[in-house]
Design a protein around this nucleic acid. Sequence first.
DNA 1: TATCTTAAGTCTTATAAGAGACATAGGACA
DNA 2: TGTCCTATGTCTCTTATAAGACTTAAGATA
Lengths: 252, 252
Amino acid sequence: MTATIQAPTVSPVAPTFLPLYRQIKALVLRGLEAGEWKPGEAIPSESELAARYRVSQGTVRKAIDELAAENLLVRRQGRGTFVATHGEPRQQFRFLRLAPDHGEPGPYASRTFECRRGRASAEAARMLELKPGDAVVAIRRVLLFGGEPIVLEDITLPGAVFKGLTAERLAEHEGASIYHLYETDFGTRMIRADEKLKAAAADPTAARLLGVAAGTPLLSVERVAFTYGDRPVEWRRGLYRTDRHHYTNALY
Amino acid sequence: MTATIQAPTVSPVAPTFLPLYRQIKALVLRGLEAGEWKPGEAIPSESELAARYRVSQGTVRKAIDELAAENLLVRRQGRGTFVATHGEPRQQFRFLRLAPDHGEPGPYASRTFECRRGRASAEAARMLELKPGDAVVAIRRVLLFGGEPIVLEDITLPGAVFKGLTAERLAEHEGASIYHLYETDFGTRMIRADEKLKAAAADPTAARLLGVAAGTPLLSVERVAFTYGDRPVEWRRGLYRTDRHHYTNALY
DNA sequence: TATCTTAAGTCTTATAAGAGACATAGGACA
DNA sequence: TGTCCTATGTCTCTTATAAGACTTAAGATA
């Protein structure tokens, strides 16, 4: 059939027809983006959405299926469908791929050295799609596992989005995922991220903060994280000690 | 409904009921594993499978959906559903996550230094689920991009599976993915792989083969690749030069 | 007559809708 | 206080129809 919800404008070039379930998906996505339902909350039931959009429940199901596959929604049979959040334990370390070589992961902690406001460098501006000189927030911190400093991170955020972010606010939040903080305090939910990995030698500062000799090979992890609409809202560079940990990746 | 294809044996403890579409999925998977349809070939149409298994076409569809999501099958509207293969260009570098920092990837080549039969070390045996001393094939090669040596790899394979593998056979196959060779010549299709990444300093041998100074930080990538039934059939360790390339990863 | 074009036919997978089964949580009730 | 019932979710399965991709053959054209 290829029905459309709103009368489509005729375009001679691009395929103007989108499957019905994808149109529904786009509408739900818009609701998510607009904050109609907050992280952790339940969205309306499938039949409710079906009634709202005048389609069958099965069509809504297929739309939600895709959003759930993208980790934007979480289904719980018999309960409902919920907006995914970085708060729940299972999502806690979704973006951290570090694992100990042997044994169980030790207790996690973070220590923030610096959290200051500044101006975007050319590189930061490029990564975050800002103009050079725009306001940014710069964070430097160390992640500890089992009491040992394992990761040194420099995080750069657009100042416009993260207005009231201070070292105190970060300290209060220690132990939990920083993405949870972004979510609860700044209404910015991270959807996906791209990482680039390289090997690098520890410079004197990194060596001191991580407790290794200068020149030690470290894993350099550069990440750009995106929110709705593929808007980049975090740029970070991490240096990982890999003497007793490793970065895990599953290939399919 | 929760119908079963064969009368289920009653088990008091585990959920003996599997959704119908998962039973179908298991049956198709068994056919794939048994080589009923070879890589690149089309499997029977949805309605044909539906008739064979006495279920509706939609149920077969859902089973195939999952197998396609796992990259075991490839759907082509109007044509059929095909057994995935490492031969087609798009799948060619599915497991190689290296990308140049700038510009397009240069032409690819590989140079094999060594391909000999030997006995499994304790470590190799553990990785490949063999007994120490079992026959293995050991390959050492360098991957070149744009003429430059970028990756040094040591590959270990179970000798029982890769009986006639020789340096000549490898050389004939140069330019294409080695997984394609496994598939066509040894009937072993790689399904998925686990990787562990670390940073390491180049030892003299690696430094010479990669054309860098000894001690240069390199990305160490250890991979175990699995075929059907999660059976490990390849263990490899790669050393990547990351001065002008990086390992990319997408996080969801 | 030989060749190219085009339209119909017939495969395939993709989309849509609906009915019934299963899971969960909370209130009614003994 | 504990158990059962029921309302309300998602999950499973089926059926029907649409859309995409080849094949074939009729017809136009040289």
